[in-house]
Design a protein around this nucleic acid. Structure first.
Lengths: 150, 150
DNA sequence: CTCACTGCAAAAAGTTTGCAATTGA
DNA sequence: TCAATTGCAAACTTTTTGCAGTGAG
């Protein structure tokens, strides 16, 4: 059956995702979705825009931003880092890691010892020379676990 | 001896750090350093600016930025996240972590299994509810390990 | 005395917003 | 039909840069 090619499959996936998330299926969203699926690495909105524009020349960067945020909120994609988008200075000089609340985005320190995880090698694939580990423990802080206070 | 108070100590520390790094000791840098040492958490340049300005009203935000970057380059302070300051989409849907090169800032994925670390609890201090771990393995990628090609 | 550093103002980058026109359901 | 979505332009936030004057060594 000629209709079962990759793009039909993506199309189906995408419609299911939208239905689950309760959002409309638009041409723009579909193309952003398809291009994201086809991209590797950690693309920026501009990079996504560049690729999408080759298929929808009239699309605006603002729509790409809105769509990416929508996908992230809906759990269709994740963002690489939940940390503040701005420069932040680490004032804690002790070896520590971070507790990051996925809801309110608060970042609290936790001593490396207290977290206590067990890494392995000192050398990873491709000759990557490990210097240290920075762990984000993602989850919900005490406050955000409260049932949504209406 | 009355001169051995905290601020004298900080002063001494700072001068040593500057000597090591081969940079000039200026009043602005000293005050930024002292305020950073006195701050907790993960302050933004604006926040640092706010505090420093109360001691040097004429200081400019640009100088605060330059100073913070200088401190980070010199290893006096770290930044909280080495990830791009811009929004990035995670296109890899498999459970994975990141190899982050502290030199060129490149981010490569590594499968969670391949990295294989051993976390512990499901509940941490303060009732933080863990959802998942995101690990940055910080170090030098193969390319950046080459002796600086003059 | 000299080069590094500062402050200023302007520019650049990245992101968000308001609104009128358009479109999916 | 009509609420949701889009494109545009303008605004906003964060960060960088060029340059003339100042200051540390």
């Amino acid at each position: 059956m000629a209709t079962s090619d990759t793009s039909e499959l993506l199309n189906f996936c995408f419609r299911s995702l939208c239905e689950e998330a309760g959002i409309a299926v638009t041409h723009q969203r579909q193309v952003v979705y398809e291009e994201l699926c086809a991209m590797h690495g950690h693309p920026s909105p501009e990079e996504v825009y560049g690729r999408v524009r080759s298929r929808i020349p009239s699309i605006s960067l603002a729509t790409v931003y809105k769509t990416i945020h929508l996908f992230i909120e809906s759990g269709v994609f994740r963002e690489v880092s939940l940390h503040h988008g701005t420069l932040r200075v680490e004032t804690n000089s002790r070896p520590h890691h971070h507790l990051v609340c996925i809801q309110c985005k608060a970042i609290r320190d936790i001593d490396a010892e207290e977290l206590g995880l067990a890494p392995a090698e000192g050398h990873l694939p491709d000759g990557f020379l490990v210097q240290r580990y920075a762990v984000d423990v993602l989850g919900l802080c005490a406050e955000c676990q409260q049932p949504t206070p209406q």
